[in-house]
Amino acid sequence: MPKLDQKPRVMLEEFRVKNAPDDYGMADEKWNFKKFAKNMRIVIVRLDNFEMEFDLIGVQPAFANAFRRLMLSEVPSMAIEKVMIKNNTSIIQDEVLAHRLGLIPLKADPRLFEYRPEDATVGTEFDTLEFSLKVKCSNNKSQPKDSFRPEDLYENHSVYSSQIKWCPLGNQASVHKEADVGPVHGDILISKMRPGHELDLHLVAVKGIGKDHAKFSPVATASYRLLPDITLTREVTGGEATLLQSCFSPGVIGIDSEGRAFVQEARYDTCSRNVYRYDEIKDSVILSRIRDHFIFNVESVGAMPPNIIFIQAVKILRDKCKSLLDELNTL
């Protein structure tokens, strides 16, 4: 049995996840800044406007988890909070309509806005975005004959998020560009209507955090997984090798020219542990995960790019630490 390297790891056994016997979790470890600075690394694997994958290496799970939690619940974003319903004759109920509108992601950089004071009754240009949605469904005058498709028969029979119009407050029109404000996606179906139905709504978006309501969360999800590690304990060849290969995600196990299996890239493994189903090969691998190697995946909802969201989370953590320290110092 080959000796495993010194990385901290959890063992994925057949029926449970097991820490090494002497490992009581890294929470007990004495924290040393120098050591931390030396080990800590961030590797960005993939980044676009909506999604980011990066590795956070050499930190304790509490750190990684804190960032994950902050991204989910404390990084602010803008969302529709109030809906003034002037007219709603569609079949969708006022409350349900308001709820649906609230969940539409808005592209508005929350860093440019302030939280609206709790006692404020009207918003200002610094803390509020206002929109209007005014749609009326009617019969299509130039409807083609013999067609029964609603899109031919009626006009505006579906209300989409693209129909939401921004109403700049005060100086907003000059501060923000038209393209930077509004729903992220234009094709979100809000309601379906029939002739005679009408929506006349005034929407008020404010800045908020995910703790308050999930609609304020800037991420669709932010989570991490630990880096998988696969070690072969013996030589696996021939049929067993292909069987072994099939037990893991594609690209994890390779087979060399002599038919021997080798670990190609453990990172891609989904840790399905299906190798334990086969008695003949279950002894040939040790499955484990590196405890201080977090593969983060951040999916932004669209208001901010994911890397900014992460940085925001870091800033929030810093501010929290600072305020704690300040409090402690005043004692």
């Binding site: 994925l12 996840v17 799970p61 804190a66 991490y224 630990l226």
Partner: peptide, 15 residues
């Protein structure tokens, strides 16, 4: 599946 605790961030002991 392997789940992580949302509170501590560490993997749960059971699948």
């Amino acid at each position: 599946d392997i789940f992580y605790s949302g509170l501590t961030g560490e993997p749960l002991e059971a699948y």
